[in-house]
Design a protein around this nucleic acid. Structure first.
Lengths: 399, 399
DNA sequence: TTTATTAACTCAATTAAGTTGAATATTCAA
DNA sequence: TTGAATATTCAACTTAATTGAGTTAATAAA
């Protein structure tokens, strides 16, 4: 985890060029297909500067020409778009029972996915499993090794020692005190970024989901617990110690359900996978996967439907808190549940009245479902890497 | 209000230099007195680049030499510090009943304050009052007009049309649809920034208060209602529409006190100035100012003490939400109440257990009182301007 | 059909600002 | 007294931006 944020540093010609390259790539991503002159206006660079950068990017295979503009007077612009195969990133999600992997290309398309059950969570073993996945992903997808920008590893947070006493519940056995970033980087021999699931899942929506055109939004991630990823103007909010987004332990009902963390009324006790498992167990139903939930939902199983309906209130409450505190363009929900459940919630939920989000000029929904499905966090790992090449900044790399 | 965020744009030599200048100033501010070589290491610029920038800044009166370093081997570094009179900014807080003004210099010191009662909130009249305050501030403080960087105007939020139906409660009569930024800029003939109180107050702590060395923190501002300012890595979080930080209408007690906004259990119904006024009124006590509160507190007046003690629970709850969502280095409370009340709360309040903020490596308090007192928002207006010159970025100016 | 206008793009020259490396000054430690 | 360490300055050098003139290709007007 990057506890230290990207710290602003001094600029020089080299860093300026890198910043401008990223900025041009970001504009192509968001506006494609697009011509040089339009990029120049948007970035406030000269057309000459954009031309030079476009030539460089095209030479390196990031972009390709896709035709010419047709409308209007004057010389039609040569249009450029991202070249899907220009780069790729591997997202890896390490869970206590399995490792998930997804290879995602520059335009956010999935080129390969796999899942490997874990016999042991021993760090060296996990690192080797991930390494094999990397090799397999490259060979099966036909993407050249030099096009792999890096690997984004998503592990259960929070990172570091914090007061959440159930940290052990989600943490991986045998990883306490292990420098996971260094371990993976040494084994994989490519750049490695470590992040927790909710931030990664939020980024996945920007790289290949419903937030492609949004800079400021929240993502409520349903994993084992409930996490939050906040994107502000294109940059993730990580907090002073890198653990921002612990939505699951926000108290939504003082004096409510007892939570493993010792408090009462935590959001997680109402709307997490753990809570639905417990609820169904009390009704004699054991579920082990998202597929089980899908089956129950297809049957409109009464216990599940009851839980779903009850859950809308705390979820709506949490949405109200986020709308008032963060003023996001939208709130995206996604993660480990089947899409149908999220859709049901969005359809049935009464959104909190009287929040900042009720704007007459609103043109996108207050709440929407993420497009990345149950592998949100895995895709998010890749998105961490992909997003990086589109994020202009003059900053030291996180150590 | 800057609805549009600072948008990243392309860099060129001029923008690079501006970025580097701000970066150098920021390092001097945070580390002063400090030598060129140290700044160069911290900014990853060459000492030559830093030397050039320092010479420029010194020539323009932003910095001055303060002696030489004494420790260690080698040539002692020439130390530099901010020159207080190098620049100043005027903070203006427009309330329904009065206009407050504070002239703050580069090192965050107050050079002048005044308060003018308003006979009318008519925009043209208010602008003229502010203009007179500006003229008076400059003449009485002896600061040259060309040193005035700008005026930061703080008005009650939220800005724009939002669902908070009590917006009318805090908004100024006669200002609906008025482009306040343009009005003040036209009248004052200097750069004008408009912001809402909580964001401004949060910045005040960074420019001249307890957050001088912090980049990521939250500020809970007690005005008429309760607002929030979140600083992330040195940048304010404004949200997609510029209204982030509506803490007062976060529901902390579902089904609790009825709020003017139509919901129940809003934080504002427990811990705002409005709520204490109502509570005391029910006990036959009318208060009209912070001084009245101070007097009652000095007497340990039972009704006030009861309210204070009851208020710790929702306040603690709000702190828990912020700690879990934002993972701040600290949470600062401040605003319209007397300092003694905040100190009492900090002393008596039971902080929420089991949050991210309980770290063994924590070295500053989880909650602290702001240093700007009851004029937080006014100073904050000035801080908006001052902070700007210390914030490195390659970005278009907010329109 | 011809001509003017508009817009996108390229080339060559210029310029701003950062870096590099050698030289110099000052202090501490052996 | 001498050598190592550190801060600073000076004079090239380098990168990558901008500027302005010129080219190309489309639409609009004559």
């Amino acid at each position: 985890m990057n506890v230290q944020q990207n710290q602003a540093i001094g600029s020089n010609p080299g860093r300026t060029r890198l910043h401008n390259r990223r900025l041009v790539l970001e504009h192509v991503r968001a506006q494609q297909p697009v011509g040089r002159a339009q990029i120049a206006r948007a970035t406030r660079l000269s057309t000459q500067a954009v031309s030079n950068i476009i030539a460089e990017l095209e030479g390196e295979g990031w972009l390709h020409e896709t035709g010419r503009a047709s409308n209007g007077r004057g010389l039609p612009a040569v249009l450029y778009a991202l070249k899907a195969s220009g780069a790729a990133a591997l997202g890896v999600e390490v869970r206590p029972d399995a490792v998930l992997a997804a290879l995602v290309d520059l335009i956010g398309k999935t080129r390969f996915t796999d899942r490997v059950e874990l016999q042991s969570t021993d760090p060296a073993h996990v690192a080797e499993v991930v390494n094999q996945l990397k090799i397999e992903a490259l060979s099966k997808s036909g993407i050249a090794a030099r096009r792999l920008l890096g690997v984004g590893v998503v592990m259960p947070g929070p990172f570091g020692q914090v007061g959440l006493s159930d940290a052990g519940q989600s943490a991986l056995p045998g990883w306490h005190g292990v420098d996971a970033q260094a371990l993976f980087a040494d084994t994989l021999k490519v750049p490695v970024v470590l992040e927790h699931d909710s931030i990664a899942a939020a980024l996945a929506e920007r790289v290949g989901g419903v937030a492609k055109e949004l800079g400021t939004y929240c993502f409520i991630y349903f994993g084992t617990g409930v996490g939050l990823g906040v994107m502000n103007n294109g940059y993730m909010i990580r907090g002073a110690f890198g653990n921002a987004g612990e939505l699951g332990h926000v108290v939504v009902q003082p004096g409510g359900n007892a939570c493993a963390c010792g408090n009462r009324g935590c959001l997680e006790t109402y709307i997490s996978r753990f809570s639905v498992q417990q609820h169904l167990q009390r009704h004699g139903i054991d579920i082990h996967s998202g597929d089980d939930l899908q089956v129950l939902f297809d049957q409109r199983q009464p216990a599940l439907m009851h839980w779903l309906n009850e859950a809308t209130t705390p979820l709506s409450h949490a949405i109200g808190i986020l709308e008032n505190l963060m003023d996001p363009a939208t709130i995206i929900i996604g993660g480990a549940f089947p899409d149908d459940l999220f859709d049901y919630w969005i359809d049935k939920m009464v959104l909190p009245p009287g929040t900042l989000a009720e704007r007459p000029d609103r043109h996108i929904a207050r709440v929407m479902r993420g497009a990345s499905g149950r592998m949100s966090a895995t895709y998010g790992g890749a998105a961490l890497i992909i997003n990086d090449v589109f994020t202009p900044r003059i900053a030291a790399e996180a150590s």
